[in-house]
């Protein structure tokens, strides 16, 4: 069994989840509370990764993150290295691939909060930022937890995007889903079976947790 690949998978999932919680919160806040021109266009753009085939996302990421791409060139200027085939590269890919799964539940949780609670906080002297941390976040904790779990599970399952952007470098970009695929390709069914099996309890436990959170919310 390829423990290194399992380790990379978990590391990627944790990094993606943490990053996305920080990135998605302000986006969800804006989508939940502000009205502006082009909002629905922006929202659809954020949810686009759900609708696109992973290989299409992977293709564009290669274009942007490659040595001639916009992001790739900035990265090379800063570090002198390439983004493709690195852990940071697949982390960026994973964040973009999972962004809808973070924004959507968070936005739903934020919109559910009664506006009068926010107004009450403003009248009590809290700035918008303080209200976000003292009122909105604690009152949407279960929605945020659901978002985190969804992102975590979704990034464990990523395959096509990561394969295109990161390839399969052991310890760096070879995640478990890729390792399973390669094991099957090499007719090593026993290794594939072990790794495949290790996914089931993790995913199942997290799904149970999501259902519990949803029950608590309603």
């Amino acid at each position: 069994m390829d423990y290194l690949a399992l380790y990379v998978t978990l590391k990627l999932a944790v990094v993606t989840t943490v990053l996305l919680m920080i990135i998605a919160a302000p986006i969800a806040y804006v989508l939940a509370y502000y009205r502006f021109a082009g909002k629905s266009l922006l929202e659809a753009l954020i949810y686009l990764p759900i609708a696109l085939p992973p290989t299409v996302i992977g293709f564009y990421l290669i274009i942007f993150m490659g040595p001639k791409g916009f992001i790739g060139r900035i990265w090379e200027m800063l570090t002198g290295g390439s983004l493709l085939f690195t852990f940071i590269g697949i982390a960026i890919a994973s964040v973009i691939y999972s962004i809808p799964f973070a924004v959507q539940p968070m936005k739903a949780a934020f919109s559910k909060i009664d506006r009068r609670l926010l107004e009450s906080a403003y009248v009590l002297g809290l700035s918008k930022k303080a209200t976000f941390f003292r009122v909105i976040i604690p009152n949407s904790a279960s929605g945020i937890a659901a978002a985190a779990i969804l992102v975590f599970l979704h990034s464990i399952g990523a395959f096509g995007v990561l394969l295109m952007v990161g390839g399969s470098i052991p310890g760096e970009t070879r995640v478990a889903s890729i390792a399973i695929y390669e094991a099957v390709e090499m007719m090593n069914y026993q290794a594939a079976a072990m790794m495949a099996l290790s996914f089931i309890p993790i995913s199942y436990a997290f799904l149970l947790l999501i259902n519990k959170l949803n029950e608590a919310r309603s």
Binding site: D114, R116, L117, S120, A121, V135, P138, N139, A141
Partner: peptide, 10 residues
């Protein structure tokens, strides 16, 4: 106001 002054998490 009538209701909803209090924060449910506190």
């Amino acid at each position: 106001f009538q209701d909803y002054n209090l924060f449910p998490h506190l």
